[in-house]
């Protein structure tokens, strides 16, 4: 069968047009035949978002950005995008710009509102999430945070310095001090054991700071404002913990002082030289006894036999 020129040309043009339109839709990640659902979001900062970037819901690509431009009236960044029409973009949904501009992979993350709420109409505006520029917010909060951290570290330093001086102070003879310290350490250990929970909570708090930071940098990051307030809280807790720790240290300190001054049983033991001498004479008596036993074992063995007979 021979086709006329008109049919050949017409068919070729129609097929090419179809391929062109469907091809664009395919690479824009749109349903090939359904209509799309156009929406708008308003931002202060586009953070490198451009037309063609992907729109995701819970990490699934559902559409793409049509156009990004500055509104002539408000001066804000208007982001026009479209999503698959079966995505329920309800009231309460919000959009955030995510990814790294430096790597060229910026995208629009859409967080859906409650399923029960009304759908945002075609062409409607989706609220903008706050996480527009994570690093900038973090930088803005940095001095405050550093102050808190600096304070905490200073306090820690003080504590350590005191401990240092304590350890460095030469008291009576070295052995005595060492013994005293040994004994003290046991008490400190006990003390620390009792304080373990508190120390653990300090570390846990520090842990949660980095966890929060991680979350913020991660894909489902919470608002940095939230994070910062949490961080401040954490630092306050840390502060309290450090104060408590200092108290503990002071207790240890007084204990050590008392020990040194010979107060308490342990102190007496350590500090009373007569005790030492008495112990010494006891030991020398024991020594004589053993020597006597070695010299005249019979004397002692008789008594032993007697015992045996029993």
């Amino acid at each position: 069968m021979k086709f006329s020129n008109e049919i050949k040309v017409g068919l070729t043009i129609i097929v090419a047009t179809l391929i062109f339109i469907l091809g664009i839709r395919y690479f824009e990640d749109l349903p090939l035949f359904d209509s799309t659902y156009d929406l708008v979001a308003e931002f202060d900062d586009a953070a490198g978002l451009i037309g063609g970037n992907i729109v995701r819901v819970n990490g699934v690509a559902v559409g793409s950005v049509n156009d990004v431009y500055i509104s002539e009236t408000t001066g804000k960044v208007m982001v026009e995008f479209h999503v698959n029409p079966n995505i329920p973009v309800t009231e309460g949904s919000f959009a955030t710009i995510a990814g790294f501009d430096a790597l060229g992979v910026v995208r629009l993350d859409l967080t859906l509102g409650p399923a029960s709420a009304a759908r945002i109409p075609e062409g409607g505006t989706v609220a903008a999430g706050t996480g527009s520029d994570l690093m900038a917010d973090l930088t803005a909060q940095a001095p405050e945070m550093l102050d808190s951290v600096g304070e905490a570290v200073g306090q820690l330093n003080d504590v350590l310095a005191e401990a240092n001086t304590m350890l460095a102070t030469p008291e009576s003879d070295f052995r005595q001090t060492l013994n005293a310290a040994k004994g003290s350490m046991q008490q400190i250990e006990q003390l620390l054991a009792s304080e373990r929970d508190r120390i653990a909570s300090i570390l846990a708090n520090a842990d949660s700071i980095s966890a929060d930071l991680n979350a913020a940098l991660g894909e489902d990051g919470q608002s940095v404002q939230d994070l910062m307030s949490q961080m401040e809280e954490t630092l306050a807790t840390l502060n309290e913990d450090l104060e408590a720790f200092q108290e503990t240290n002071e207790q240890i300190n007084t204990l050590l002082t008392k020990l040194n001054e010979g107060e308490g049983t342990l102190g007496m033991l350590i500090n009373d030289p007569s005790m030492y001498h008495r112990m010494d004479s006891t030991l020398s008596g024991l020594n004589d006894l053993i020597a006597d036993f070695q010299a005249n074992p019979g004397r002692y063995l008789k008594e032993m036999k007697l015992v045996d007979l029993f």
Binding site: F20, G23, I24, F27, E28, G52, I54, N66, G104, V105
Partner: peptide, 18 residues
């Protein structure tokens, strides 16, 4: 391949080609 192409696809590109 398609995922990569979609990530960097600009709707203006085919218009420019036309």
């Amino acid at each position: 391949f398609v995922d990569g192409a979609r990530e960097f696809f600009q709707p203006f590109d085919p218009i420019f080609g036309i």
